[in-house]
Computed example of a mutant assay.
Amino acid sequence: MNADGEERSHWFDDEAGPVVRPYAMTRGRTHHAAQHRLDLIALVVAETQGDDPDTDGSLSPEHVDIVELCRDAPQSVAELAAELDLPVGVVRVLVGDLVDNEFVHVNRPVPPAELPDESVLRDVINGLRAL
């Protein structure tokens, strides 16, 4: 209750206004089929060709914000979550929607186990210098 004796909603912040719950942004979904590819360091890249997300009525403002951020430069899932001040799980669902609609694609970094061993690279460099 507030000072006037009226009951206040706990979903309202005087400075921020009404709070939108994360599940409302994802329409109640907590994961996406492509979520297995969306770890924190996966890079989200905007497609250079295709429809303008602003004209697609099925996209939320958060979807459009993600595409706009990725147009400037590829962004990791963690960077998007930080920039938009959204939980990572919500960003994963939204990015999955954008992948399905072909507004963005995801580049996964090479896992450390698949990178060549440093000693092999040194041997190659030494071999090239010997030529």
Rank of each mutant, 00 (worst) to 15 (best):
M1F: 10
D4F: 15
G5N: 07
G5M: 06
E7M: 12
E7H: 12
R8T: 08
H10F: 12
D14C: 00
V20A: 09
R21D: 14
R21V: 10
M25C: 01
R27A: 11
T30M: 09
H31S: 14
H32Q: 02
H32K: 01
A33V: 11
A34E: 04
L38W: 01
A42I: 08
L43F: 10
A46W: 04
E47C: 12
D52W: 08
P53M: 07
L59N: 12
P61C: 00
H63L: 00
D65F: 02
I66G: 03
D72M: 12
A73Q: 15
P74G: 06
V77Y: 06
A78Q: 14
A81C: 03
A82Y: 11
E83I: 03
E83M: 10
V88M: 06
V88G: 01
R92H: 04
R92S: 02
R92Q: 14
L94K: 07
V95K: 03
V95R: 05
L98W: 07
V99Q: 04
V99Y: 03
N101T: 07
E102W: 08
N107T: 09
V110C: 13
P112H: 12
E114S: 10
L115E: 13
E118P: 00
V120H: 05
N126R: 10
L128N: 10
R129Y: 00
A130G: 11
